[in-house]
Amino acid sequence: MKVLVAVKHTVDHNLKPFVDAATGQVDLSQARRGINPFDEISIEEAVRLKERGQVTEIVAVAIGGTDAKDSLRHAYAMGVDRALLVETDARLQPLAVAKLLKVIVEREQPGLIFMGKQAVGEDYGQTGQMLAALLGVGLGTFASGIQLGDGFVEVTREIDKGTQTISLQLPAVVTSDLRLNEPRFIKLPNLMMAKKKNIETLAASELGVDLANRFTVIKSSEPPQKPGAIQLANVNELINTLRKAEVLQ
């Protein structure tokens, strides 16, 4: 069975973003970029399925500029078999991304599609759900465990007070949560080898998809600073203060 993994080249999740006062937009010009951590988890899961002999081919697809090739090379170094770049310089919104991915799914015909539950940055957390809906296939969001069966996949998901297990007919879309696995450490020789691998490139604008933005970010801002805590000498003083402020009875 073939697995498709969607990969986003995102800003580093350790980055503290700041807003450019002149434009009112988040300034990412100097930001370090890399593979979205949730997508790395998706690749790891696909590679483990292949190592167990349940998957024959893993295809990674990224949508973005030529710099997104770095994340596809990272995917190669982790063990995917092929990589595709759907190239665009536009900052696409999730609906357009889902539509592009649908075209790739129809072309590749995977049995299972893995994506991260969200990408670092705008934190939309929508694309996997939209892709499943557009394809008319089953959806398992926030996966913390996966069991692949014959024609179905069982997905254990994190829900409010515990976990839920659902079974999805294949093909299906699964979005990875943080605790699905711990991605492997990439060895330097693998990364060197990945540099030589081929990345097939398609132009996003030639796939017959409406890529128009549906909303505009008018202005971004950092949350207001609080004045800082009133320091109290000990726990008893804390309790007295909270009682006086009628926060505690």
Binding site: V11, H13, L15, K16, P17, V19, V26, Q93, P94, L95, V120, G121, E122, D123, Y124, G125, Q126, R214, F215, T216, V217, I218, K219, S220, S221, E222, P223
Partner: peptide, 30 residues
């Protein structure tokens, strides 16, 4: 339709505020 998720303020009819970058940024969206 492109949905707008995790909205924390609504200025009807069509402007919202939502967090981005794990809550480091709040963006006003039309």
């Amino acid at each position: 339709v492109s949905p707008i998720t995790d909205v924390v303020e609504i200025h009807a009819p069509s402007i919202y505020v939502r967090p981005e970058y794990a809550g480091n940024i709040f963006s006003r969206i039309e």
